[in-house]
């Protein structure tokens, strides 16, 4: 394993120190923890598929419900990772204009970035607002997916992850917005 390979894999720097920014530090640690759960989920998904294939081909014992479980998990993985992705600035965008402007007027760019972050906060707030009633009703009606008598899994933990992910995403986007506004002010 060569040196240049490791350098690219270092991505842990998005959590600021507690003294530097208590809000950012707490938010960052929480996001990192959620993201770690999501990451473990990807590994679990791989193992689930491998076990299903082996069970089906060699033991006549496939794991029932892999496709539904995988389907639900991939949504959970997204919402577990989103806050960290926002803090790490990893969401896909076409930034050619921003990069152009960066040299000539960094202040404009910072304000623009702050605006985008606010848009992100609004978007996740909307998803949060739209989704929480379904979490309540899923909890109350003990909603599940799967097949009665074969296997069933409650849906509320999955709906809960969406809510949690969105809530943290809103905070993360607001934190980023504050950072951008600060840098806009200091650029003045």
């Amino acid at each position: 394993m060569s040196e240049e390979d490791t350098s690219e894999l270092q991505e842990d720097r998005f959590v600021p120190s507690l003294s530097e920014s208590p809000y950012g530090a707490v938010l960052g640690s929480f996001s990192a923890a959620m993201s770690a759960v999501g990451t473990a989920g990807i590994g679990a998904l791989m193992l689930l598929i491998v076990l299903d294939v082996i069970g089906r081909n060699f033991l006549d014992a496939p794991i029932t419900g892999v496709s539904e479980i995988a389907a639900r998990s991939v949504v959970a993985i997204v919402f577990l990772q989103v806050p960290a992705a926002i803090l790490q600035l990893r969401l896909t965008r076409a930034d050619f204009l921003v990069r152009r402007l960066q040299k000539s007027s960094p202040k404009t760019v910072a304000w623009l970035e702050a605006l985008f972050c606010l848009a992100g906060a609004i978007v996740f707030a909307l998803i949060l607002w739209a989704s929480w009633p379904k979490l309540l009703s899923a909890w109350q009606t003990a909603e599940f997916f799967g097949v009665q008598g074969v296997w069933t899994i409650p849906t509320w933990p999955f709906r809960g992850i969406t809510i949690l992910g969105c809530a943290l995403a809103v905070l993360a986007a607001l934190y980023r917005a504050r950072e951008e506004i600060r840098s806009a002010r200091s650029a003045a």
């Binding site: 089906r56 006549d60 014992a61 496939p62 029932t64 419900g65 892999v66 496709s67 539904e68 097949v147 009665q148 008598g149 074969v150």
Partner: peptide
């Protein structure tokens, strides 16, 4: 016996004790 048949969801139940293995799809 020992056959693999696509039988998604509830229809997987219909293959119980038949010796066939239900496969999702």
């Amino acid at each position: 016996q020992n056959r693999k048949l696509n039988a998604p969801g509830t229809s997987a139940n219909w293959l119980r004790e038949t010796g066939a293995t239900p496969v999702d799809g």
